[in-house]
């Protein structure tokens, strides 16, 4: 092992790292996003693939949780039917703050090809969405990219949620 001599005395006797509360909190939040396992249709298969060993979500600190009360990210993957909309909103309400939503696939974004009476035409009618992923179905790489974009967004946020303005959090 390399021998380091830490000069405690010059730093006031302790190893010190300087940071701000915002950065510290956002570092913690963005690197352990725990999504709620919420597959609704065929897009769920791609979401599961991203969680599995080949695409390996865990290396981003993203571990799927089976309970809304332990998760801070909701990945709405698939077709949201009108009958189910109520429950999607209820699960969203049960998640503790702060929380984020990714809308995955064209069905969740706009209703997609299901331009019918039984499909919610875009999940943003029900819950506020942070990231929309286009595609039918989006590849796991796309979902990973979306999670990384979300991390970028979280790192821009202020720990005081009231200070966050929409235009400050724009990614592109």
């Amino acid at each position: 092992m390399a021998q380091h001599k830490v000069n405690y005395a010059s730093n006031g006797g302790l190893p010190v790292a300087l940071t701000s509360v915002d950065k510290l909190l956002n570092w913690g939040r963005s690197n352990s996003l725990w999504p709620l396992t919420y597959g609704l249709a065929c897009c769920a298969i791609e979401m599961m693939a991203s969680g599995g060993s080949r695409f390996d979500f865990d290396r981003l600190g993203t571990i799927f949780r089976a309970s809304p009360r332990q998760s801070d990210l909701m990945i709405l993957a698939g077709t949201l039917s009108k009958k189910h909309a109520e429950f999607a909103r209820r699960l969203y309400d049960q998640m503790p703050e702060p929380k984020w939503v990714i809308s995955m696939g064209s069905c969740a974004n706009t209703g997609g090809m299901f331009n019918t009476y039984a499909t919610v035409q875009g999940v943003d009618r029900i819950v506020p969405v942070d990231i929309y992923i286009p595609g039918c179905a989006p590849r796991p790489e796309t979902l990973q990219y979306a999670v990384m974009m979300l991390q970028k967004k979280i790192r821009k946020e202020s720990a005081n949620m009231k200070k966050n303005k929409k235009q400050d959090l724009r990614l592109v």
């Binding site: 009108k82 331009n115 019918t116 009476y117 039984a118 029900i126």
Partner: peptide, 11 residues
């Protein structure tokens, strides 16, 4: 096919 008034505001 795209639903009546009731269906479009259901959720």
């Amino acid at each position: 096919l795209q639903g009546d008034e009731f269906a479009s505001w259901y959720e």
